[in-house]
Write a protein that binds this DNA or RNA. Structure first.
Lengths: 278, 278
DNA sequence: CCCAAAATAGAACACCTATTCCATTTTTCT
DNA sequence: AGAAAAATGGAATAGGTGTTCTATTTTGGG
């Protein structure tokens, strides 16, 4: 007696079934289950013989495993692993390639658009790979324990600090946006104390006013969290925690997506941490 | 006599070679070349027999084609198509899955960060799929022919208009950022004429002031380009061209990456078009 | 501790694989 | 137009494929 319609045809479904039946599986079969989930690419491309060697079992075990999952044989199960690869997302170059194929959309503005889109995606990928989880946690810690968060980010970084101020406001987190209106930046920051916190954002070429503000705050003992683009940045050395964000660029124009994603993370994570305290 | 070292092992390299040698190839072989480039997935997974049928040639032709490209046989060429699939980027769900595996980075802030990263990527993907090339071209046209660009975007959209103002400034494009300081928004916009242009940015819930500004400008005959999230938006109906940007969200917080990428595109494309005029 | 049931290893098998080879057709050059 | 060269189709082949089958080992309940 076999299941007729209840056979997973896509990878997530198969995964679910392996997890579900996997625990009750005999030794060799669960060995296959573990190998399959950990090396799905090998399963997709290998032959029954090669996979069997890699997983440390006999080829016949693979067939038995496939049948235990409800398939007719190993080949049928392998097909699921193959479709998974087929459905993977295209990479950057392939996307650009695809764009060039559609000749009608190859006007200059459209090329620019896809360039920026790719730069944005790339920046986020890079940050996602490199961001150290511990740093993020301690930055949130510092920001959440501050009475008031002072947001320092001018020129190119001003959109980011503006966004954070808006979001903090919506989340009921006390903050001051240093907008330098009327040249009053230093004065805006003058109320900050050791119980507060400065979140500084600046990229090359570091706006001199931002640097001066951070230095003044540091001198007063205000804890500083920085978002910048290198360890040599003048706002990194003064900071308790600093993030290195490397934005990809298109024709010299740097993306801001990664910085923005980090900024959104900080605001929401701080709000989340503060709300837990009660 | 065969090439020894000059054999492409990655897909882009193979592609280049096919294009390079492809034009000088005999009929059946170029038939294979075209099929291979158009159906790389089939080549990766199929058998020589199945691919031959699909491409309308004999299996032996595939072998001859592989040899013409410098490989020892069809299998060696197929391996290149397979590594291509292996190197494809993971999709969203798989990334999140991978994160959950690394237990140490599963603190709340890190989960939030990956959530926002994925939302950003998704937003960009969606926009890249849906953005109509023609719309982009005509928006750039309108903006580039304006004497002064008035940037209207408040609250959540203010970071975007701020960024555009900064970038336009750097690119020497006359613009006015409506920042509503001192409640002077209407007055800031009062100098706009039919020779100028308003770029309006607003998302649900549409800031009432933004809507009012757009209406006033439209009444004066100022051309309007809008970035918004639906055709029912009050700033879409008044616009000469309007963009629909659907941002993915994470726990209710909408991404801004797609909007930002579009904003960057518009600024640079307008600058590019203006510079061509001389 | 024993025995029935389940699980496994590995040989056997039928089928399908990529490749080779050669007769035939098509192209190219004189 | 004719001969030489290149390209092609298709049959032949040797090797590898997934699967089946069975003897053997392992497991688990009384």
């Amino acid at each position: 007696m076999t299941d007729f319609d209840d056979i997973p045809r896509d990878f997530p479904g198969l995964k679910e079934r392996i997890v579900e039946r996997g625990s009750a599986l005999p030794k060799r079969l669960s060995q296959v289950a573990i190998y399959a989930l950990e090396h799905p690419d090998e399963v997709a491309f290998g032959t029954a013989a090669s996979i069997a060697v890699a997983a440390g079992v006999q080829p016949s075990t693979l067939v038995r495993f496939a049948k235990a999952m409800g398939y007719q044989g190993f080949s049928e199960l392998q097909e699921v692993f193959r479709t998974r690869l087929r459905e993977r997302v295209l990479n950057y170059d392939e996307r650009l390639e695809q764009l060039r194929h559609h000749a009608h959309s190859a006007s200059k503005p459209n090329v620019i658009f896809h360039g920026f889109s790719n730069a944005a995606r790339k920046s986020i990928d890079i940050l996602q790979e490199r961001l150290e989880p511990g740093k993020l946690d301690s930055a949130v810690q510092i920001l959440a324990s501050a009475e008031t968060v002072y947001l320092v980010g001018l020129r190119r970084s001003f959109p980011i600090s503006t966004y954070m101020s808006y979001a903090f406001g919506k989340l009921n987190i006390k903050n001051v946006l240093i907008d330098a209106i009327g040249g009053q930046a230093q004065e805006e920051l003058s109320f900050a104390t050791g119980n507060d916190c400065v979140l500084a954002i600046s990229f090359t070429p570091y706006a001199s006013e931002t640097v001066a503000l951070v230095q003044a705050a540091a001198a007063k003992g205000v804890p500083i969290v920085s978002i910048t683009d290198s360890g040599f940045s003048p706002i990194a050395s003064r900071a308790k925690v600093w993030f290195e964000v490397t934005e990809a660029n298109f024709e010299g124009f740097r993306s801001m997506s990664a910085t923005l994603a980090l900024a959104m993370t900080l605001t929401v994570a701080v709000a989340e941490m503060k709300s837990r305290r009660y």
